[in-house]
Amino acid sequence: MQVPETFEYERASSVEEALDLLERHGEEARLIAGGHSLLPMMKIRLAFPEVLIDINDVPGLDQIRIEGDQLVIGAMVRHQQVLDSPLLYEHYPVFRDAEKVIADPLVRNRGTVGGSFCQADPAEDLSAGGAALGGSVVIRSKGGERVEPMRDFHVGPYETKVGPAEMLTEVRFPIRPGAGSAYEKVERRVGDWAVAAVGAFVQLDGDTIADVGIGLAAVGADHYIVPEAEEALRGKPATLEHLQAAAQLCHDNCAPTTDQRGPEDFKRHLAGELTLRALKRSIARARGEES
């Protein structure tokens, strides 16, 4: 029987209260939302917080909305909401692609966007998709609010910029008119973590790639990105030759390791191939050739 180590339980009904509780209980306190990353970690003693602060009653963090030229997703938005959101689909189908292959519907009913980003698992799909899009994260503390670039948010595996008495409240993505986006994943079986996965967006100016973002999951790419591949595409014509060159850069510059999900060379192959597919699909969507 897998049961977590003992802990104290608190329930917050506002962001302020959650921050108060975090401050009062110190570094060994953790927020819990869906709990679908934290509780499994606690069961196998990879995490043993002394206090859990339940934020499921905190209002106002479960919205998906447009603010100016930004698409804003609250930290308590559940995966299922992301999957079902017409607004997100309209601007970035990469979210629907990714959510379809994140765990299963029951897990998606509980797991949250904030939880996924804060877990900072190198194989997590939403984090790779978010890295592809860039954007920013909003972190609250009692002192106020700070905005960090999305691509700096993940400090390393399971480590983020969120400090002990802070919480992630929302993630923001710039709206890029006419951009196409996509997510491609290979998994051993439905709902599993990625063997490798790639998210991308492409913004076209005629046939030229005006802007592009690529995020890679599970292949050891720092901050989920390979900036060389993006640089190689910006300002270039959207031809197969250029896409293949970028895919090759992802193949060469990621750092996968051999594990139970596959050998290093296979994952490297996937990093290249899935980059190519995600870019092709993003371009097809930008051109309105694919929904």
Partner: peptide, 27 residues
């Protein structure tokens, strides 16, 4: 399974189907 894989522990919480092995009773 105890690991939110098998789903035999599925119940509803506030109308949503969830895996009760990965939900705390106090929550």
């Amino acid at each position: 399974c105890d690991t939110s894989n098998c789903g035999t522990c599925t119940v509803w919480v506030d109308g949503e189907a969830v895996k009760s092995c990965t939900t705390l009773a106090v929550m």
